[in-house]
Amino acid sequence: MIREFSPADVVYMLAAARWTVALALFAMVGGGLIGMLVAVLRIVAFRPANWVARAYINLIQGTPLLGQLFVFFFGLPLLGIQVGAWEAAALSLSIYASAFFAEIWRGSLQSVSPRQWEAGAALGLTYVQRLTHVVLPQAVRIAVPPTVGFLMQLVKDTSLTALIGFIELTRASQIISAATFAPLPVYGTAAAIYFVICFSLSRLSQRLEKRSHAAR
């Protein structure tokens, strides 16, 4: 039975878009936690830790996300962990995001001049005080715009999870397209929904960037 592409389908797609957003948010939190750890390993004064962190970042950034999704989707059950599409998608997107967050945050931390550390030491602050009161506030200000920018990247990347069968916006569009044989309006609608989410995020990132420049 072929039916028309109707407003009800758009509602279904919007409902599926919630999973797109949920997945991106989950990957941001999960990836943020792992990424923080990797960023620290990348800069601590202990060479082997730096190597491990660099190898991790190169491995993740040097392989396609699509490949990582399939490896987790088929690999986790071999470890005796039964996973559905959501678990595989959430885990691999978190790991994928962590490598990028680690690099963004390492760059932000290192872009704070070493003199700031020295100045803090000269004022008699301890290492932790220097980190939390002198360096981190400046690094965070630098890191926020690219972090929001990457979140927009992440929203787009969630579309790949459709290919392991996770029902988010893209997979929902495939389903409706198959039922209505109207691929152009269906995928056009999907693109429009992605556009609204991503454009808001990229505008936000640009505004934050302007503001952080103004504050300097």
Partner: peptide, 18 residues
Amino acid sequence: RNTPLLVQLFLVFFGLPS
């Protein structure tokens, strides 16, 4: 830049024939 590559490919491959 604000839409996923996958959807763009679907539009070209499945959408353009119509």
